[in-house]
Design a protein around this nucleic acid. Structure first.
Lengths: 149, 149
DNA sequence: TTTGTAATCGCAAACGATTGCAGGAACTTA
DNA sequence: TAAGTTCCTGCAATCGTTTGCGATTACAAA
């Protein structure tokens, strides 16, 4: 999905091409993946000072429902990026450094098949992030605060 | 984990046994799993009218960090239940009917091993819910609203 | 180009969740 | 049992996100 394709999707579905939507789209498209809402909002405000944060949220939700952007939970905040046309990738997010790493969907397919066959449950595995600790932080960082004295 | 064990954990770690904490603990222990915060708060307020919702949140987070309760995301709301002493189970949550179904951890172990071996990434798969559509809703409910005309 | 109309926006209020602070309560020690 | 200290609570302010509403604007049709 690129900028032009996204505009075509909006027009084809009958949604208006407002300056606000085009600005948000450009920001997400030009950003280097995983953009937070406030990051997008601040950037949009410099391009269009009357921009309201509610509009940013509404626009991102519209884009998400149209499949134009993909929503990724990093920590407890949602981030957005242009949808990967090849069926997408998943994310591994380190809870120590907040770094995000891409993961091929291949690794989840077997799990999906098991759930579907054993329980008849169809999981939404398209866009979700797996929390954990990355190799770098695991090897160097002593930070913890869980079930321990 | 039962009520008495939870109290022992609090005392052993040096946390105070306040009425508020004991009330929240009893409510979660007596509830039939997956209790929402407001559900817990309303119930606590009848037992102790001065109870504040901030205290409920602080108490639940403390219990979660101590491993006394398990936090489960259902929809976009967090729910709580006493931690399963057998290492816990996961949840499959239907996004149509919001029903929650337990899932043995066995189904995630293979996935965990793959991530650890291939990427050195240690995922937090202890307490998370898999969103999707359950067999009942899949077979009967026509509700949808995604990338379509 | 002008007009009509429904989609969309900005604003402000509201919501669930979190945090700072000062008073009060639980536990320890004597 | 009484006193001291630290933790914990209630309150209120705040944060990020969502929603209702009247005003504005993009687009279609004349």
């Amino acid at each position: 999905m690129d900028h032009a394709q996204a505009v075509a999707v909006l027009r084809d579905k009958g949604y208006r091409l407002t300056p606000q939507r085009l600005i948000v789209l450009s920001i997400v498209a030009d950003g280097a993946g995983h953009m937070g809402v406030d990051e997008i909002f601040q950037s949009a405000k410099t391009a269009y000072p009357y921009m309201d944060v509610a509009t940013v949220y509404r626009t991102l939700h519209l884009f998400r429902n149209l499949g134009v952007v993909t929503e990724v939970a990093i920590g407890d905040r949602l981030h957005y990026e242009l949808t990967d046309p090849l069926g997408g990738h998943h994310h591994m997010v380190c809870r120590v450094c907040d770094g995000a790493f891409n993961l091929s969907p291949h690794y989840l397919e077997e799990f999906r098949n098991t759930l579907s066959q054993e329980f008849g449950f169809e999981p939404d595995l398209e866009h979700f992030a797996i929390s954990g600790v990355c190799a770098g932080c695991r090897d160097s960082n002593p930070k913890q605060e869980s079930p321990a004295p």
